[in-house]
Amino acid sequence: MYLPGTEPKYFINAGLHGPDAVILDLEDSVHPAQKDAARILVRNTLRAVDFSGCERMVRINQLPMGLEDLAEIISEAPDLVLIPKTEHPQQVTEVDRMISELKHRHKIDRPIWLMPILESALAIENAFTIATATANVVALTIGLEDYTADLGVTKTPEGRESLYARARVVNAAKAAGVQAIDSVFGDVGNVDGLRRCAESSRELGFEGMGCIHPSQIAVIHDAFTPSQAEIEKALKIVAAFEEAQQRGLGVVSLGSKMIDAPVVERARKLVARSRAGAPAPHSSGLNNDVQERH
């Protein structure tokens, strides 16, 4: 969940709403005249605020200004840095190098991961090389406002104009072995639109998406969490595969259907994702209480 870096009132309770990560933003949501203040505020926030176990991320400014951001915030060891408007792998390595120097200076042992944001046609074309620029890249994401502006097209709720780019990001991320995270859905009041968008993201292969308001968190979690029927089917497939392995059978079948190895692998991934993506204890699924009681 993105939080404007100049709005400390949003920081304190952000973790209560159950996002997987909070992104303290130094870029687009911060007025150019307030960049210095925002840096200090974000640094102090990383130092002082308990985000209830969420990952702590920072979106720095586009380079070269982003390097000034790093000098201020890396001492507080955020979990991840988002690099906006990344178009070349060299930009990623530059950020990585500076983070490495700052970590050394501040005696930080643990990794600080990177998530480049691809926001132009060129960035999309370079997606794989960006994703593989350093070992610290763990995810790719896409910024659709800038991307559609670069294409000179209108961003629509259906998103046909960005289908290629989103699919390309997913493909590059998978090829590089990192996560693909979809862009935010900007219409906070449109819950149905968000749900459709998130479901479409999951179908495309994204493993999560950004959000800009706490009310979007539960909807996104629901959309990205496999349904009970999907989980049950996957569990059956995995069980059938393991049973076949134990019995030394080369061919796996479920009922009358033969199961190929990729199907088993997909089922395993789905089970793993459903376990990892179980709603946090404080998330707001309305049906949780009913399931608890019965």
Partner: peptide
Amino acid sequence: SPDRLRIAE
């Protein structure tokens, strides 16, 4: 307000 919505829920 997200915080107040959370309280209400």
